[in-house]
Amino acid sequence: MTDKNADGPGAEGERADSGPMRRDELIAGEYVLGILSLEDRGKVEARMAADRRFAATVRRWQTNLSGLDDAYQPVTPPAHLRRRIERRVFGAPAPQPSLWHSLVFWRGCAFASIAVIAVLGGMVALSERAPRPAPAPTLSAEMAVTGTGIDLIAAYQAASGRLMVRPVAARQEGARSLELWLVEGGQAPRSLGILPESGEGGLIVPADLRRALGPGATLAVSIEPPGGSPTGKVTGPVIAQGPVARMP
């Protein structure tokens, strides 16, 4: 293997300053520069969606040229723009009470937070010792949180005196799952799994996420299609979230 380290063709693909690679470099650079026609810009964006390497080339140009953004002087936009944007983004007129501003919802959320803590407590417990069968609940209650499509299920074990409360996305159209997300260090949310809707609750945190689960992270619950988000990303509305704190 004498020439294993030789700078032969193909080792790193084509050289960036020759042939098709250079053409890609130029097109990506021209795109980021903004000099292309609308139709050509559309072609570049279609190519980015289909070709990860080309997309990375465009992103590199974007990063490289972003220093030129310093030339843009900030100008405060008129106040009415914000209201118009919120109307478009949030759908309903902004002043109308939304899920987030509903007193009933927040009352429900207090319960949901308890459930999240219970689930988190359960996860820590599960990671520390082998799961063992818990005594079957002797009493249960289903509490509807008005206007949210969320039910809270309470299960009581008389033997231990333990009362667990779980949120269930019961009354959305069709069956739905509640998915628990970990948001950490500004990264995109990562799924911790589906909140169990029956049986003795708790979920096992995937091994690769355990280190990230600590103070500073945020837990959030979204409503997803049955079985969880099909894309691995949050697709449904977020119905509860809060920071993770160490228990005293």
Binding site: E86, W100, V183, G185, Q241
Partner: peptide, 19 residues
């Protein structure tokens, strides 16, 4: 970092983060 976290929260449909 703060801005990155806020954008992640917008991804969770957090209106406050958007504001």
């Amino acid at each position: 970092d703060g801005l990155a976290l806020l954008i992640a929260r917008i991804g969770l449909r957090d209106r406050e983060a958007f504001a």
